[in-house]
Design a protein around this nucleic acid. Sequence first.
DNA 1: TACAGAGTTAACCGATCGGTACACTCTTCG
DNA 2: CGAAGAGTGTACCGATCGGTTAACTCTGTA
Lengths: 188, 188
Amino acid sequence: MPRTVLDRSDAVLALAGVFRRRGFESGSLSVIQQETGIGRGSLYHFFPDGKADMARAVLAQVRAWFDEQVFEPLRTATDAAQAVTAMSRVVEEYFASRERVCLFAAMTLGEEQETFAAEVRAYFADWVDVLAGTLERGGAAKPKAAGLAVDAVAAIQGGLIMTRALNDDAVFSGIVARANERLLAALG
Amino acid sequence: MPRTVLDRSDAVLALAGVFRRRGFESGSLSVIQQETGIGRGSLYHFFPDGKADMARAVLAQVRAWFDEQVFEPLRTATDAAQAVTAMSRVVEEYFASRERVCLFAAMTLGEEQETFAAEVRAYFADWVDVLAGTLERGGAAKPKAAGLAVDAVAAIQGGLIMTRALNDDAVFSGIVARANERLLAALG
DNA sequence: TACAGAGTTAACCGATCGGTACACTCTTCG
DNA sequence: CGAAGAGTGTACCGATCGGTTAACTCTGTA
């Protein structure tokens, strides 16, 4: 039997898929092993502290992706309208190819809530802050920017719920498109 | 030891609390027994088909509450603006007193997703439909009403996620208030 | 007073849970 | 070559899972 050598990041990607499909609690070691082909030995080699370690690594990977693909472009944008629209496009593509599930949002439910409360709070707070900053630089009325940013992120998260509930990808697209319009309108 | 006689609806209420706090999967029979004081025997007396039966009953109870307190008032409203604002107030109170968790939204995640897909879809589709109908009767532009309604329900659901993530009740209040404003604006 | 049935208790079941132990196969590098 | 160590497979652990059973205590009714 050939030994398939993988590294930690391969495992993180595979774990993310399982957690998105089955949830963190019900993604048991057995189904992880079965769906990813990664044995218990490898799992505990990469994640010595077990499931909590796996969840932490997956969350960190998602966070890094958003830092790079969403937050940093917003931070460094010179054209706010273009940056906001780019965010909408990137976010829509991201969730469309990832089971329409936000792992950070999933972590606000259930027992593990407290375990990752700090990471979850930071993810959403940073997203809101960086978006509000872009809006302000784009000319949005200062006191309005924060509310607009919270509403936009909430629209995205609520959109994921609605699109899963109604099992219709177009629902998410519509919600994101209209949220984007509201942001652009505030940029005058 | 005195026998504490309860009926099914007492059990449903207690179960709803557990599922909101711990999630459906991790709300094990042992913790249900511990947190509600209802023994296994009673549980299986009221819900012969086990946990799935319990979840079904809890979902039905929530659905009935929304039918009565949210959907029906919207359906029979003569003043659309007042009805929409009443919905915002009632929904905000409901979730504030229920751990800021929507059980139907929680059911769009994890394994049990498919088990309750029909109920979940009906809940959200009916909410959107009845709200869109109220907006139309209130004078909202016909093609816009559906989008406005979807956006409002998504804002509420996303608001719950954000308020849990940021652990700040004011976040939910703000999101609901601004969503309400957008609906009122569409009624001209 | 007797008895049917709702509600309850606690011991118990096999299955599965997250986690551990350890032998094993490779690759790397002296 | 040969040791070190990264990566892997598998048997196994105690704990807990959802669910079952059967004996029990009440309440309502006639």
